[in-house]
Amino acid sequence: MTVQVMLISPALNAALREARFDGDAPLDAAGARRARAAAAAVPAADRQLRGPSERCAGTADALGLRTGPEPAVRGWDMGRWSGRRLAAVGGEEPEAVSAWLTDPSAAPHGGESLLELCSRAGRWLETLESAGGGAGLRVLGVVEPAVVRAVIVEALALPPEAFWRLDVAPLTLTGLSGRSGRWNLRCGQPLSPAPAG
């Protein structure tokens, strides 16, 4: 059975603009406005879901999606670094940040390692094949950029280090189609035209 997975990265908020680790905060006015403007470009799906963060919830609402949180696609658990600025943590704990960036099994923050995040994303992806009941399934989700990147790493069997080389812009659609062990990627489609200016 072929599954189509469409993942939308949420709109910007203050925490993302400030480069905070997993800064779970609601959308600001600009992020909500951009998400509402993109609502007409959201593709149809058999199943809709979102990550549990406030940013994913606000984006899903602004896009007109009415769905509850899916714990399996929650954002990356940054442990004691959650909500802190990358620059501050890097200044206080440079060796820990270096380990986090270079060793996929490291979790100096006490949360999930990169390997654990990717493994969780891969398990979720595998569950979708059985959820289709033998027919093609189209799944649409609003999930944090780290989850999009982890899903890509797992689907394409990339080395975990490739995670750091994948950029996921706000309000873009990343698509995967296929089945376990055989996925094709379509990445980075904007949901609406770039603003003029």
Rank of each mutant, 00 (worst) to 15 (best):
residue 146 A to D: 09
residue 188 G to Q: 06
residue 29 A to G: 04
residue 18 E to R: 13
residue 103 D to V: 09
residue 193 P to H: 00
residue 110 G to Q: 12
residue 66 R to Y: 04
residue 180 S to C: 12
residue 91 G to F: 03
residue 181 G to A: 14
residue 69 P to H: 00
residue 105 S to H: 12
residue 190 P to C: 01
residue 22 D to L: 09
residue 117 L to D: 07
residue 109 H to D: 15
residue 120 R to W: 01
residue 57 A to H: 08
residue 133 G to S: 04
residue 152 I to C: 07
residue 24 D to R: 01
residue 112 E to N: 07
residue 146 A to S: 14
residue 169 A to H: 15
residue 67 T to P: 00
residue 15 A to Y: 05
residue 105 S to N: 11
residue 31 G to L: 00
residue 181 G to Q: 12
residue 177 S to P: 06
residue 53 S to Q: 12
residue 35 A to L: 02
residue 174 T to F: 00
residue 64 G to D: 10
residue 36 R to Y: 06
residue 105 S to R: 15
residue 47 R to A: 11
residue 150 A to G: 04
residue 136 G to H: 09
residue 80 R to P: 04
residue 111 G to I: 07
residue 37 A to K: 03
residue 74 R to H: 12
residue 64 G to M: 11
residue 86 L to D: 06
residue 147 V to G: 04
residue 63 L to Y: 01
residue 24 D to L: 02
residue 93 E to D: 03
residue 129 E to P: 00
residue 62 A to P: 07
residue 34 R to D: 15
residue 19 A to L: 14
residue 196 A to G: 08
residue 76 W to G: 03
residue 128 L to E: 06
residue 19 A to E: 13
residue 146 A to H: 04
residue 159 P to V: 10
residue 132 G to H: 01
residue 158 L to F: 07
residue 18 E to A: 15
residue 131 A to F: 00
residue 160 P to D: 11
residue 98 S to F: 13
residue 85 R to Q: 15
residue 86 L to T: 11
residue 143 V to N: 06
residue 82 S to M: 13
residue 119 S to P: 04
residue 9 S to H: 10
residue 5 V to T: 00
residue 120 R to I: 05
residue 197 G to H: 05
residue 63 L to K: 06
residue 102 T to A: 11
residue 94 P to T: 09
residue 33 R to N: 08
residue 97 V to R: 09
residue 27 L to V: 03
residue 153 V to Y: 02
residue 8 I to P: 01
residue 8 I to Q: 09
residue 69 P to W: 00
residue 163 F to A: 05
residue 170 P to L: 09
residue 196 A to S: 13
residue 97 V to E: 09
residue 42 V to S: 00
residue 2 T to C: 03
residue 65 L to H: 03
residue 111 G to N: 11
